[in-house]
């Protein structure tokens, strides 16, 4: 049997007694492109942080390539959900380079080989023209591209991308997804790509990992994105609607309205 790239067993994550992931189990095959889907607060970021070893599970385990790696030793590239960007006055190049063997004590002085590595990562995401500009002058999407370049450093085999489409306009979303997809195929990377809207990923993903109410469901799009499957996952009536070749998940109103797509609320 092939060792899964990421395997969770009875994984339970809580914050102060509140369960975000509740006995979740799944196994992600290596080399697959997985959309991690769920509304705000469904636990996508928490799942990523747990995989990285930054959150300690209350119960259960998560293995990367069948092992428990020491902190910082995982072959995983991580692109965090966009936060404030400090150091807006440094150039894009330096912001990416800071991640290159950044845990090593010493001065941030880069050898020719290290500079070449940074340049290669920037080229891989077509971010070369951003390298010389101060980070604060870049748009949200351009910063995302730098963060993606940063995640490619140190030759990861797995990418955890937390909402990489967050600050993009719709036209850019598919372009970005395609870039990540092609890059991953070319390098044989496993990708976990979190998003609250599945539509920009249609045609690119191999699997969907759907998170809701602390539970998770992994499968291909046709298995997961159905009314019965999601109703079972939510434990409440949920309807999957196809319109214009797009998928919408419509849940009953109230606090549990989910945003599988931006239009869910308007559909009701």
């Amino acid at each position: 049997m092939i060792t899964p790239a990421i395997e969770a067993g009875q994984l339970t994550v809580s914050y102060g007694g509140r369960r975000v992931l509740d006995h979740v189990s799944f196994a992600i095959p290596p080399g697959s492109f997985v959309a991690v889907l769920g509304g705000n607060g469904a636990g996508k970021t928490s799942l990523f942080r747990t995989i990285l070893g930054l959150n300690t599970p209350e119960q259960g385990h998560v293995l990367v390539e069948g092992q428990r790696f020491g902190k910082g030793r995982m072959p995983v590239g991580y692109m965090p959900q966009m936060r404030r960007m400090v150091a807006g006055q440094l150039s894009g190049w330096h912001m990416v380079a800071a991640a290159l063997r950044g845990r090593v004590w010493g001065v941030p002085w880069y050898s020719a080989a290290e500079r070449a590595e940074v340049n290669a990562a920037l080229n891989a995401v077509d971010a070369w023209e951003l390298a010389a500009r101060p980070v604060m002058s870049l748009s949200g999407g351009e910063r995302q591209r730098l963060l993606l370049a940063q995640a490619l450093l140190d030759h990861p085999r797995i990418l955890l991308l937390d909402e990489p489409l967050a600050s993009l306009d719709p036209a850019r979303m598919r372009e970005t997804t395609r870039r990540i997809h092609d890059l991953a195929r070319e390098r044989g990377l496993t990708v976990l790509f979190s998003t609250h809207d599945i539509n920009p990923l249609m045609g690119f993903m191999d699997h969907v990992l759907y998170l809701a109410h602390g539970k998770a469901l992994l499968g291909n799009v046709d298995e997961v994105m159905t009314t019965p499957a999601l109703t079972a996952l939510y434990g409440a009536p949920v309807e999957v609607v196809r319109a214009d070749g797009r998928l919408f998940v419509v849940a009953d109103g109230g606090a549990d309205t989910l945003h599988c797509c931006d239009c869910a609320e308007h559909t009701r």
Binding site: G72, A87, A98, A99, G102, R103, W105, V107, Q150
Partner: peptide, 23 residues
């Protein structure tokens, strides 16, 4: 400062990633 400046730069610019990389 010379000894800690590389991880400090990483931690200052991208704290979440730095943490994930064991800083």
């Amino acid at each position: 400062l010379a000894v800690m400046s590389r991880p400090l730069l990483f931690a200052s610019l991208q704290p979440e990633v730095a943490e994930a990389k064991g800083v």
